[in-house]
Structure formats: C-alpha cells, structure tokens
Design a protein around this nucleic acid. Structure first.
Lengths: 193, 193
DNA sequence: ATGTTTAGTCAACCACGGTTGACTCCAGGC
DNA sequence: GCCTGGAGTCAACCGTGGTTGACTAAACAT
C-alpha cells in the first residue's frame, strides 16, 4: 500500500502494518494476507517471523501498550485528559488510526487475548490510578476506565447519537466532572474482598 | 445437548440455542453446526429457517432485547438496580448464561450489528433514561450505560481483579453512588451539539 | 571458492464452516 | 388414492485463510 518503505526491516514493517490492521477490524476480519501486502512481504513470511497469527496479535498488543500508561499529574489533570481522549481521534497517529482503545475492544473476540489485555490494562492504568487515589480503591480506578472504554465504544462502534454528535468540548467537560466525582467518592472502602 | 425437547417447534429451539451460543462466544467462534446440534436439528435447517448466519444473529439480537429496557422507578432505584446488575450472573436465566450485556459486547465483532445494537441500546436504555433525567442529558444517560458495560466487560472478559474479586455488595454500593453522582451532575447543558 | 546461516518467496495444502440443492417424510385437502 | 406443500435431512460444494515445506538469493564467515 505504501510503496514498500524498504528502509526499515521487514519484521518491523509487518508489525506496524499489523497494528494498523488489527485496530481497524476484529481479529477474525484481519487477514495475514492483507498485513503482508501492506508490509510488502509474502504471507508466509509474516507467519514465519511471528510464529502464528495469535502470536502476532499478542505482539501487536504489547506494542500498542508502549508509552500509553496513565499520565503523571494531578487527579484533576488526569480526569481532564481522559475526558478529552474520548473524543480525540488522532491519539499519537496522524493518518489512518491505530487508536489504542480500539484494539482493546477488538481483542474481545479472541479469548486468548483476554489475559494479556487484562494485565496490560491493569498495569498501565488501573494500578497507577489506584496508587494515586489511595489504598483500596481499585474499583474506583476501574470505574474510571470502564466509563472511558464504554464511551469510546458507544462513539466509535455503535455511533450512539448522544455521544457521537455531542459537542466535543462541552461533552469532555461533562465527562471530566463525572470522572472527578467518581475519583473522590466519599466511601473509601471499595474492595474489602 | 439437552435430549431434544421435541415439544417446542424447531425454529424456536434454534433461536434459543443461538441466543445461548452467541452470548457465550464471539460471532465468528459461534458455529451454525453447534447451534443445530443443540437444537437437535440439521445445520441446513437452521440456515434455511433464518436465511443466513447474520440474519440469525440479528434475530437473536432483537430476541435478547425483549423486556430488557430500563426499569420504571426513581433514579435512585435505577442506579441501585444497575449497580447490582454488574455482579449479577443470573439475570433472567438460571443455568448457562445468555447475559444480555454479553451479546452486546460480542456483537462488536460484526460491523453489520453495530447499527441494530446501537439502536436497541438507544431505544431501550439511553432514551428512557434521558427522559427521566430531563432534557439535553443524553450524554449523562450514556455515561451511565458506558460505565455499566465497561465494568461488565472488565469483570467477565478481562477478569480484572479489582472488579472480579470485589465484594459484590460493597462494590455495588460504590457503583450505585457513582451512578447517582453522574445522574445529577450540576451542569445540565450536556449536548448543545 | 565453498559451505552455511539468514531473509524471503512460491505454490500448495487442508481444515473449517457457511451455503446450496436434491431428497425424504409426513399432513391435510380434494 | 393422490398430490401439494411444508418440515426437516443428507451429502456435497466451495471460498477463505492460516499454515507448511521446498526452494532461491543474498550475506557471511572459513
């Protein structure tokens, strides 16, 4: 597709193509042949260099989670950032759209991915956020992420008008307020397990 | 599987089996042959009676949304009910588990389902909830559902410990509080579009 | 030069699963 | 009795797509 940027090594090009493809369609609808074509390589080679389709997907998964952890900053800042992310289509990439949250949602097709995805989500978002919120607040941290993911899903997949057509600025503000409320709910004892 | 309950008409048995199968695995991982076996029918017949796999899935979709709308009652009651639903595995069905929210999440594999699912979600939950909340509050209604779906996903698919291992009663209480906060956020002007 | 690994290609395989068409079986109407 | 039509079956088809093994070409040491 992109005239084979023959400079970068093939394995790297394959991974890049896979990231893009996997974030645009579900696991089953993403075909190795397309990825191969994008990378300017034969199908057999993408298979050979990653072992299997599933392995490749897992590789994509950890690739995507690089540098996507919860930001440093105050809770208020995080809330604001997250709120904006729901409407931000160009996170990190300019053209097509590997949107990190997408691939998470896509991965629900593949049972084998649940484990890794869960761990990533936990390590990169829930846990850091929990640390900021204080002890025993894993549930609240999860609620924040849940709302984020849910909204993203409603906007980008289901295209619910209430979310899709909302004015981004005002919507982000409303969401930000909600996130803040969730973060400092009075009852501190979330998970007594 | 269940010794062919030959009393009910086949088409109905097929639909029931399909509901169960589709809510347990993704669209692609659900096979007509399995559904047929469950219903005690030949594969060809399930195809014949619903036109295609996709049509069958759509049928399942509207079947599932029957009687699953937002409950009547005060906002507080709704919040409490929703909060509990995150941890309730036996909504409506005793044995296996057709959990309605599941199929919604599953349907993300199938692009063609996005439309119908979105509409159902909108008609059955968002819109009624919005009406209760007042005008121009579609976003807040969506946030409520987003959090619900997101939490469910984290618990049942990703198995995040913070959600999966939480004490159901206390967790539900925390979630309930969060939902209430979201519902009566002060800034009433959500979506000025 | 020559043998050996590394990067990559080509064609074929083969399983899976949705779909199809021809067939059978049984009611019910005439 | 006959025959028309729906319910349901059987076997086969066939596209798709991941996987595999044999092959080629360049890099690279000995």
């Amino acid at each position: 597709m992109q005239a084979k940027g023959k400079k970068t090594p093939a394995k790297q090009r394959i991974l890049a193509a896979a990231v893009r493809r996997f974030s645009m369609a579900s696991y089953d609808d993403t075909h190795l042949r397309d990825i191969a074509a994008d990378a300017g390589v034969d199908v057999a080679y993408v298979h050979r260099s990653f072992g299997s389709k599933e392995k490749l997907f897992l590789a994509v998964l950890s690739e995507m989670s690089q540098g996507h952890g919860v930001a440093d900053g105050s809770l208020a800042e995080i809330a604001a950032l997250f709120a904006r992310q729901v409407f931000d289509d160009s996170i990190r990439h300019s053209e097509s759209d590997p949107e990190p949250l997408m691939i998470l949602i896509r991965s629900l097709s593949l049972p084998a991915a649940a484990g890794p995805v869960g761990s990533h989500l936990d390590d990169l978002f829930i846990e850091p956020l929990r640390k900021k919120l204080g002890d025993k607040t894993g549930l609240r941290a999860s609620m924040v992420m849940a709302m984020l993911i849910g909204l993203r899903m409603m906007r980008s997949f289901l295209k619910l008008p209430a979310v899709s057509n909302a004015n981004p600025e005002q919507a982000a503000e409303t969401i930000r307020q909600a996130l803040e409320k969730i973060m400092d709910l009075n009852g501190a004892k979330d998970e007594t397990l």
